[in-house]
């Protein structure tokens, strides 16, 4: 009911505004068009000045309100992230300066050069020196930004260091699956046609590949603080995206085309709780590429912890291969689980 009520009020407001507008037109005809024009011109010119002042004040106020809720004031949780933040501040400074300069000029000119009968507009069709000035100066500033940007870009997108820990993350509608390579440090081969979630092979791992036998699967990603990690990113159905706002990292997960990113976590989850002052803080993986109706709920969790804690967590985990074989055990003899690796080793 309230909906219709609001609608009725809106319609009423419309009619009132329209009647005022119509009346003002009659008034302008009575007063004479020239006089109305001058009056309107003065009002609008003044409003431009008001808009400039209120706008700048509003921008300042907006910053007061929201700065602390952004990540600008929170230290980046990875080394790459620190570079991105630095780059962000350079860009903010340069663009902020240009923003202030041009907006102030624009609205100030609008106010200052409003129509008066006394002034004749200044005929000023071109000036090559000025054109050169505002071609060259932006070009110089942009070179700085491109220079910094590409330097960091190549630094972040080059191959991961050799000793980086490898973790695989796979997106599907609408959750993330994590796989660790186990002791051998090698992720077992996959073939999407082997995917069989009901039999414990949600990732389509090829058990024929012996390096898959110690692979550990998880729903949560655990990382060691200070240890570089390389994420191998996959998707099963549609494009997803591993969004890591606190590490300032992001990479699409594309079906059929594995992608990678690498970074070094700087703070454990516990440390970040103190830094952010939020006792519920967690590193979240957000899906940043539209992936269907559950896109907004596609969340993953990363726990960053010390090596000891990580080792303890890992020790509790059992390789997926063993879990699958145990589940299949009633049907097949238990010896099967050990026979396979031996057979593989001989090959």
């Amino acid at each position: 009911m309230s909906g219709y009520f609001i609608l009725a009020i809106l319609v009423l407001a419309f009619i009132v505004i329209f009647q005022i507008a119509k009346a003002s037109e009659y008034v302008s005809v009575l007063k004479g068009e020239e006089q109305t024009f001058q009056q309107n011109n003065r009002i609008n010119a003044f409003l431009f000045l008001v808009f400039l002042v209120l706008g700048l004040a509003g921008a300042y106020w907006c910053n007061e309100l929201f700065y602390d809720r952004t990540l600008l004031g929170t230290p980046a949780a990875s080394e790459h992230g620190e570079k991105i933040d630095f780059m962000m501040w350079i860009t903010l400074a340069i663009t902020g300066l240009v923003f202030l300069l041009t907006q102030i000029l624009l609205f100030w000119f609008a106010y200052k050069y409003q129509y008066t009968e006394k002034r004749q507009a200044f005929y000023y069709p071109h000036n090559n020196k000025l054109e050169f000035l505002w071609t060259a100066v932006p070009a110089i500033f942009l070179s700085v930004l491109v220079g910094f940007g590409l330097y960091y870009w190549f630094g972040m997108t080059k191959d991961a260091p050799k000793d980086a820990q490898i973790v695989e993350i796979t997106g599907k509608q609408f959750n993330w699956m994590v796989r660790y390579p186990g002791k051998d440090g090698v992720l077992g081969r996959k073939n999407y046609r082997l995917t069989d979630a009901s039999n414990g092979n949600a990732l389509g791992v090829d058990w024929e590949d012996a390096s898959s036998h110690d692979d550990i699967e998880a729903t949560e990603m655990h990382l060691v603080v200070g240890k570089t990690v390389k994420l191998v990113i996959n998707a099963q159905d549609v494009i997803h995206d591993v969004g890591l706002p606190h590490f300032r990292m992001k990479m699409d997960a594309v079906p059929g085309i594995p992608t990678t990113i690498w970074f070094t976590p700087k703070y454990t989850t516990e440390e970040m709780k103190k830094i952010t002052g939020n006792k519920d803080f967690v590193y979240e993986i957000s899906c940043d590429q539209m992936c269907g109706s559950g896109h907004y709920s596609m969340k993953g969790i990363i726990v960053v912890e010390t090596q000891d804690e990580y080792n303890r967590w890992l020790a509790e985990k059992k390789p997926q291969y063993l879990t699958v074989k145990e589940a299949a055990a009633p049907a097949a003899p238990a010896a099967d689980t050990t026979a396979r690796p031996i057979a593989q080793a001989i090959n």
């Binding site: 024009f37 309107n40 011109n41 609008n44 010119a45 041009t102 000029l105 624009l106 000119f109 609008a110 050069y113 409003q114 129509y115 008066t116 002034r119 004749q120 507009a121 200044f122 000023y124 000025l130 054109e131 505002w134 071609t135 932006p138």
Partner: peptide
């Protein structure tokens, strides 16, 4: 883009603006 913006600004400069 910068050229265009500055040219627009200069067009306003010392004009006799009708709003």
């Amino acid at each position: 883009s910068a050229i265009k913006v500055f040219n627009w600004l200069t067009t306003l400069w010392k004009g006799n603006l009708r709003f």
